[in-house]
Design a protein around this nucleic acid. Structure first.
Lengths: 221, 221
DNA sequence: GCGCGGCATTTGTGATCACAGCATAGTGCA
DNA sequence: TGCACTATGCTGTGATCACAAATGCCGCGC
């Protein structure tokens, strides 16, 4: 409901590229950052109306997101944002651990001071989001922290897979960060930065695994 | 060329489901099993003519495959099967190792005798494909071996990711198995089966890693 | 023989439409 | 008052068309 209003207001009117791609990017960001609740239905004509395109580009954007696992397709062709089972959440968490530990490990030898500064600055923004109770902003900035680190791994295919997992967890993540009350500082992020500074690979792997796993553990009811 | 003729002849006319899904499944199988050479171009109208559908389902099938990384999209919208760089091949091989070692490890405690028998029988078929010099059949049966094992891991999201990697490597695989001349028995598969029988997890991880990595090493020119 | 410019064809994109299936709300009956 | 059924609207599917851009080809000039 509120997301509908926000959505229309906050459209940056990104007119670059083709229509279906514009719709795709907009929806992808909204899903990955938890702006859409699990179980919400998306219709072709609704999307088309919202982004001022016809059904054709809306359909392409939706099907692409379905192909990436960001949306689920009912047997009758209806598209909704998925409600994940506990087993699926655990599996996706395991995938995050597997992929992101490897990515961080590959990024470690290339981590200069400039990168660490950048990560620390992102951490400050995360703390702001926490204090503002901005769930979407929190998720977005948190993932930006991870992406910034993993970009140094020079492994585009692996990073793409990790982002696909984030996308699948997006709608569920919102439920998580609504649940955690305490204004916790990103403690695991500090451990990650410390391990990067020290060049401590085992420590880095452990810190990344903890950061990725721990939040999602709250989700498993 | 020859694949064009074979394609038309070997269509099992799978009429189940919607048109775009039928086209998608057919193309996906052909790509994954190396029936299409790297760099080959696919056109909307061409696919439509070939599978007797209009441009709309053809476009959906192609875009879905592009979303999964099975096909690459040029800046002008042209769709071709990708020609992978060495870095990309190495990265995908690393992904295969990462995912499939984990999958096999999860499958190990659930591996009954029936599964092992099944794997051995698939191995026999692989040997037949090798002796028949049937590259597509070899790749298909080889992947069936892996899929049969990983299905026991009860990790659908992880298996889907592994299959996505197979899909991305598909067109390149054909070039590989055209290159290896010797009629080698699937030695690593024997090691995998032996480790399964013995319940030897470290041995299993090593055998899977070797099997996945070794073939692709030949590809890196 | 080789390179370059212009044209015809092919290609992807997006809009629109007809149609069939599904969901839901409303109605009638017990 | 409760429930079953029907009908209306809504949804996805696939075909077709108009359009613009890019490709590839052919011939001309050097």
């Amino acid at each position: 409901m509120s997301s509908l209003a926000k959505r229309t207001a906050s459209h940056p009117s990104d007119t670059t590229g083709s229509a279906h791609d514009r719709v795709y990017r907009a929806l992808r960001a909204r899903i990955m950052y938890g702006d859409i609740a699990p179980g919400e239905a998306l219709t072709l004509r609704g999307i088309g109306r919202e982004y001022e395109v016809s059904m054709t580009p809306a359909r392409e954007a939706l099907r692409r997101l379905v192909a990436e696992g960001a949306l689920s397709l009912s047997s009758s062709g209806r598209v909704t944002t998925p409600e994940l089972s506990n087993e699926r959440i655990e599996e996706l968490a395991a995938l995050r651990a597997l992929l992101e530990v490897e990515l961080s490990s590959r990024a470690l030898p290339r981590a200069h001071m400039a990168l660490i500064d950048r990560l620390q600055s992102i951490n400050v923004t995360i703390a702001e989001m926490v204090s503002k109770r901005d769930a979407v902003g929190y998720i977005r900035t948190n993932l930006e922290f991870h992406r910034t680190l993993y970009l140094r791994a020079q492994a585009p295919a692996m990073l793409a897979m990790a982002e696909t997992v984030w996308l699948q967890l997006g709608p569920t993540m919102r439920a998580l960060y609504g649940r955690l009350r305490r204004t916790d500082p990103p403690q695991n992020h500090r451990l990650i930065i410390a391990a990067l500074k020290a060049g401590d690979e085992p420590g880095l792997r452990l810190a990344v695994r903890s950061d990725v796993t721990q939040g999602l553990r709250l989700l498993v009811v």
